[in-house]
């Protein structure tokens, strides 16, 4: 490397519009690369340094805090329209380090590392002593609640059988004693009324995802299952360009960016279909 003046960074205000622009690029990157859980939104910019980059451009070194929203990553709703998960619901924060290259006015993420963690039980208790806390997904009560809710949903379905994609949230409610769960589902090639072995059902090539919220309440000798599912618009099978110029139709890949893979504006609006509640 040629001798020259040492590279020094430029200090930018964390609330500077340019910093906020870069932070938004970072948050969009997070949400388009999340494979499970909920979309995140920007809460605070912790640090920013701007390094000159040879031969051209600048590297923004950024530390940001995010908060979980109530929109599942499979939900095509833009994150700007999603509600932030409140403290009383047991909030989850993200702590992220980013490096973003700005060159010719264009931003590109060159490094990203995020950790997410739920608020502490003590902090939740401070603002709400009786609020339910997050529960582990592998707890027998959670597993049972999800199975019962999915079975109830499919039992009411006159069409497609939906299979579980992931459990995304679970809480134990003290009074009445109940288990609250949230989970994602996907349409399969099976008919709900005819399924004998769910393991033989396969997700459709034209993916249709849904998001369910359920409460399973324990009663003496029985239980009540209340489940509400929102089905999202199908994600079309898109043609993939091939090296020889032909297009081959393949299923859209795993839910990397559901918002980007919904139909173009000329199609009907991406309205979600709300199904339920069913008890």
């Amino acid at each position: 490397a040629p001798h020259g003046p040492e590279l020094t960074y430029r200090q930018l205000n964390c609330d500077d519009p340019e910093t906020e622009q870069v932070a938004q690029v970072a948050v969009d990157y997070i949400n388009s690369h999340l494979l499970q859980g909920y979309k995140h939104t920007l809460n605070q910019i912790d640090k920013v340094k701007v390094w000159p980059r040879r031969p051209f451009g600048e590297i923004f070194e950024l530390e940001i805090d995010t908060l979980e929203t109530t929109c599942h990553v499979l939900d095509p709703t833009p994150v700007a329209n999603c509600t932030v998960r409140q403290l009383v619901e047991h909030a989850v924060e993200g702590d992220c380090d980013f490096r973003v290259l700005k060159q010719d006015g264009q931003f590109s993420v060159t490094f990203a590392k995020c950790d997410s963690s739920p608020d502490s039980a003590e902090d939740v208790r401070k603002v709400c002593p009786d609020c339910p806390l997050l529960a582990p997904f592998n707890h027998s009560r959670v597993v049972h609640a999800v199975e019962a809710a999915l079975a109830a949903f499919n039992a009411q379905s006159n069409g497609t059988y939906f299979q579980l994609v992931e459990v995304s949230r679970a809480q134990f409610v003290p009074l009445p004693v109940s288990t609250r769960v949230e989970f994602a589902v996907a349409a399969t090639d099976c008919v709900a009324k005819e399924v004998t072995d769910p393991a033989k059902c396969n997700p459709l090539a034209e993916k249709q995802y849904g998001f369910c919220k359920a409460t399973v309440t324990e009663k003496v000798g029985q239980e009540d299952v209340a489940v509400t599912c929102t089905l999202f618009q199908t994600q079309p099978v898109v043609p993939q360009p091939q090296p020889d110029g032909t297009d081959v139709v393949v299923p859209t890949s795993a839910p990397v960016d559901p918002a980007a893979s919904v139909s173009p504006p000329a199609s009907p609006p991406a309205a979600s279909l709300v199904v339920g509640p069913m008890v």
């Binding site: 205000n13 964390c14 809460n43 909030a91 924060e93």
Partner: peptide
């Protein structure tokens, strides 16, 4: 007599550049 030099630019409170504003709440 010894005269103290004037202090320039000490008008308002200095806002630290970082961290930035909290948009929702601190966890």
């Amino acid at each position: 007599p010894v005269v103290q030099p004037g202090v320039a630019g000490a008008a308002g409170p200095v806002v630290p550049p970082c961290p930035g504003r909290i948009r929702y709440f601190k966890v």
